[in-house]
Amino acid sequence: MAQTYLEFEKPIATLEGQIRELRDAGSAEGMDLVEEINKLEGKVSDQMERLYKNLDPWQKTQVARHANRPHCRDYIEALVDDFTPLAGDRLYSEDHAIMAGLGRWQGQRVAILGHEKGADTQGRLKHNFGMARPEGYRKAIRVMDMAERFGLPVVTLVDTAGAYPGIGAEERGQSEAIARCTDKCLQLGVPFVSVIIGEGGSGGALALATASRILMLEHSIYTVASPEACASILWRSSEHANIAAEALKVTAQDLQKLGVIDRILAEPMGGAHRDRKKTISDIGLAVAEELAQLSGLTAQELRDARRQKFLDMGRSGLV
């Protein structure tokens, strides 16, 4: 996959461009440029480390939305054996913005739900850029309901800018669907682990993320409103999105301090999109670990603990 560079990655793009040129020149003219290339590669990794250790919230927002970042489908394909997709809310239609299905996660039978943004233009259109309509949330409710009846743990992979704001979505009860889905999350008597893999956008993310354990990838974000939307409301201009991102405290690191998420999963140097395979396998292990820890609890214990977790949120430790 060709690397897409973000604005702030320009120095890296330049260095990697030079490396490519040296390689081409080397093979064309039979010169040995290994030393030179090694030197540049060293520079790249220094530069990358410095950049990625100090990403600001707006830069993280861009990394979280990076086109090459692994998406829900990538995780399912790599991690879930016997994946069997399930479709439709039985009420109106199938919503491709939310993937749903059954399968085995590291050998364990689970129900999986996740926002899928799509990987290319056609895919993005099909999946509506990961912005679900009420049908997506109602499908999620249906699948969670079934998971509970069969005692299957639920795993959700969250990656959405938010629920879709459209006429049909409103007419068919977008807010009711989100409210009911969150309601369902809080009733589940089975282990429930959620991972925010990219963008956790507002109520549309929350509806799948009200879990027993909430994990976030190191450079993912979770927010009440997109930095752009917040900026256009409070600063009257979406150009202040970088300032809004900072003020909103959207990063995994901030959210852990606020007691809203449970665990941060480190990303490979340079972000999940630079080593998709490792990112995916790390998530596979982490989710399996979390599921194992929840496996000894009864349905009532799981339900009570999850409700209490949210009731307690923000009640102490803040000023």
């Binding site: 409210a179 969150t182 999350c185 809080l186 507002s202 109520g203 929350l206 009200t210 979770y222 927010t223 009440v224 003020a247 909103l248 405290k249 959207v250 959210l255 606020l258 809203v260 949210f310 009731l311 949120m313 923000g314 803040l318």
Partner: peptide, 10 residues
């Protein structure tokens, strides 16, 4: 921020 979003599940 996120603490207002958390009032939905609460």
């Amino acid at each position: 921020g996120i603490l207002s979003l958390m009032q939905m599940p609460r």
